[in-house]
Amino acid sequence: MLNRIIQQFGLQVQSINEVEDSHSSTVYKCTLSSGENVFLKIPYTKLKYQRELEAYEILKGRVSIPDMLEYWTGDEDCPGAFLLSELKGKPLTSKGSPTVAFQVGVLQAKMHTIHPPAEKVLNGIRNEYTNWSHFIENQFYSFAKDVEDVLPPQLYKRAIEKFEEMKHQLPPPDGPSFVHMDFRPANIIVDNNKVSGIIDFESVRFGSTEMDFTKLYRDFLCLDTTLYESYREGYNSIRTLIDLEEVLPFYQFTDAFNSIGWCKRRGMEKNALFLEENVSIIKNFIL
């Protein structure tokens, strides 16, 4: 399959390395004979391919993203593939500076200013905003079938009750906005002290911004109040940040619950550490 895609794009490849930490696509970093680095991305499903394609069309010129050099619509054996330019730098780490945190806030806020296009019919990216509560419930209960096989019965029962209790305390949703759904450090590229851009759009939706802060807070913002404040300043320079303290607990809880289900689907042994972290979060909320 990889060789077919390389031929499809007419690439002269010097070396190929599979990119780690890509959970919904297979991604390869290719060094061409010219010395240029490019990325080949093969989504797992046709829907993910379609979302990514539409996201690049919507975000181009509005948010810093890689250039889509070419794309292939695929066939009966492959859902499609993308040839992408390289964003200079490496994924954001916990050692990011307040300056970087400010830029991350600006980047995310710019993304959240993008609304569903009135003039374009989208086949991959759905507008979930009009029925946001139903969307959240569907996600939660689709993973619940898997979580039930992992958690002890009493803990599982109390987790369901906690979800039902917390969802009624949410404020009105903020949107409709373009939401990344996987806005985490691994998808934010930083070069020295400058944010180069954002990658990976196979899960995007139009919906409420409130869902889009959880992973960034979990893996970056909660580590240092200075980072958090700089991020808030950056975000507020573009649009007003919602009251995160009002929504984060609910989304932290649901993200942990859904992540347990994700681990069950993708393999509990190879994701054992991530599974343990999320079970611990659920226990802390309930016990």
Rank of each mutant, 00 (worst) to 15 (best):
D182E: 09
E52K: 00
L69V: 07
I6Q: 13
G234F: 00
S280D: 14
A159R: 08
K194W: 12
P66E: 04
P173D: 08
F39I: 04
N123W: 08
I16A: 15
V247T: 06
L241W: 01
Y44P: 02
T99V: 11
E52R: 07
Q252P: 04
Y228C: 03
I136S: 09
I198A: 00
F102S: 00
L59T: 03
R62M: 10
Y141T: 09
E164T: 11
Y156R: 10
R184Y: 03
T113P: 07
I188A: 08
P173T: 08
L273V: 15
K48P: 01
G261R: 05
N193T: 13
E165C: 13
G10C: 09
E76N: 13
N138K: 15
V27S: 13
L287M: 10
S203P: 05
K167H: 11
N17V: 15
K162G: 06
N278K: 13
L151G: 14
W132E: 01
Q252A: 07
E161D: 14
K90I: 03
N278L: 03
F253Q: 03
F250Q: 06
K157Y: 11
R51Q: 06
V247Y: 00
F250G: 02
G105K: 02
D67L: 08
E148N: 06
L221M: 00
Q169V: 12
L107N: 02
P172V: 05
S177Y: 03
V104H: 00
Y251L: 06
F102Y: 15
H180P: 07
S34V: 11
D255Y: 08
F135I: 12
H112R: 07
E276L: 15
C263K: 06
